[in-house]
Design a protein around this nucleic acid. Sequence first.
DNA 1: CTAGGACTTGAACTAATAGTGAAGTCAATG
DNA 2: CATTGACTTCACTATTAGTTCAAGTCCTAG
Lengths: 115, 115
Amino acid sequence: MGALTVGEVARESGVSGSAVRFYERQGLIAAARTSGNQRRFDSDAACRIRVARVAQRVGLTVKDIRDLLASLPPDPELTDWEGLHDRLTAEAERRIRDLHAALDDIRSGRRLCDL
Amino acid sequence: MGALTVGEVARESGVSGSAVRFYERQGLIAAARTSGNQRRFDSDAACRIRVARVAQRVGLTVKDIRDLLASLPPDPELTDWEGLHDRLTAEAERRIRDLHAALDDIRSGRRLCDL
DNA sequence: CTAGGACTTGAACTAATAGTGAAGTCAATG
DNA sequence: CATTGACTTCACTATTAGTTCAAGTCCTAG
């Protein structure tokens, strides 16, 4: 089961085929090649893409997500996923803090003008 | 005091002159024109730009901010500013909720893969 | 063995976002 | 009245996240 085509990964992860190729170009996922030069992914790939979609909701760019996923070894253990999970959580919390800071700045001036 | 040039507004609001012109094009601020076709703003403009910068921190686009500022009458009262303030606050809170929802989705799966 | 659907490449394209820069024109001062 | 900084518009930049295209190749079922 470690031999999915672009189309299969696309279906499993819910993105388009062109997006799958884009993510490979950007280094989010890795592919082996057949003798005929076609990409073959293992099931890990769809997984990484799902993580990437969550990370996008948090506000990370594709570049950020590449760096995030770079810490995942091939064939990751549960603890690897947990580390990634923790980093993603920390990032989401950081963004929430930034928004709270903006809110505080808004609240602190009686008129926004005076900010 | 209702006759600031682009440069004066830029200095007062802390953005570049080109940004001031950009904001006028986008409808965030309004300008009168001299006989020589130069823009003349009233002091309200710098104020609006300061609001716009806060709104950007919240994550609003220039287009969003135009819509937000559209509710401000020329020569706004305190209550007008307060209404705007409330909308901006609500928007920030909405974004915080979205991030929390993403966080919950992250947390709910033991592995991000299963999301 | 062959038809046709899925795949390959690279490059160009899209569309939004948020401005910046160049080339030329205007305005206020010494 | 000339200089100089500020102003004008239009075109352009850069980034982000892909999509689309053309022309060609692969692979699997019949």
